[in-house]
């Protein structure tokens, strides 16, 4: 049988180096990150549907339940714990202001998706915002407050 049941990989998480760590081949990235204390990455469905595990991999949003840890070799990862730049601090303030965090389960994924929306620098209508966050389930807010928060973020940026 070709390949291995575990592999050694190196990558960064929020700027911190992980060198030559051994990961089981079958472990997905979300489980690995959580095992290392990055528990802000939430797991809802493990099939790509809920969006709670969305993180940034080499500058792009990905579902960490649908990436194997072994595939992260050489990657730069950013989790919600690393969302501390000026833009993301503002986003978090807007989420707080509009009560867009309730239980907080969907929040890491919502913040990541908001980040990608803001980086695209497009002015979006409320309907378009809803379509952009359609890949992230929220069971608490009814989405209204999240759309309010994202709308304010977009207005501040443009």
């Amino acid at each position: 049988m070709a390949g291995n049941n575990s592999v050694n990989i190196s990558f960064t998480v929020n700027g911190e180096n992980f060198n030559n760590v051994n990961v089981p081949s079958r472990q997905h990235l979300a489980d690995y990150l959580r095992s290392q204390g990055f528990t802000g990455t939430h797991l809802g469905c493990e099939q790509g549907a809920c969006g709670a595990c969305t993180i940034e991999m080499d500058g792009k949003a990905v579902r960490s339940c649908l990436v194997l840890a072994s595939q992260a070799n050489g990657a730069n990862l950013k989790t919600v714990e690393g969302f501390d730049d000026e833009m993301m601090e503002k986003v978090k303030q807007n989420f707080l202001k509009h009560n867009a965090f309730q239980c907080g389960f969907c929040s890491p994924g919502m913040l990541m998706t908001t980040k990608e929306i803001l980086l695209n620098k497009k002015k979006l209508t409320r309907d378009e915002i809803r379509s952009e966050i359609s890949g992230n389930y929220c069971r608490c807010t009814g989405y209204q407050s999240i759309v309010d928060a994202i709308e304010e973020c977009i207005n501040e940026i443009n």
Binding site: M1, Q47, G48, L68, Q71
Partner: peptide, 30 residues
Amino acid sequence: HDDESVILAGGQSLLPALNMRLSSPTCLID
């Protein structure tokens, strides 16, 4: 040489199937 191996490309259909154990190949070729 391994007829139970499968190709892994983006993983966006394969990983859900693996996570749900709808599929259990011997080897993933990334």
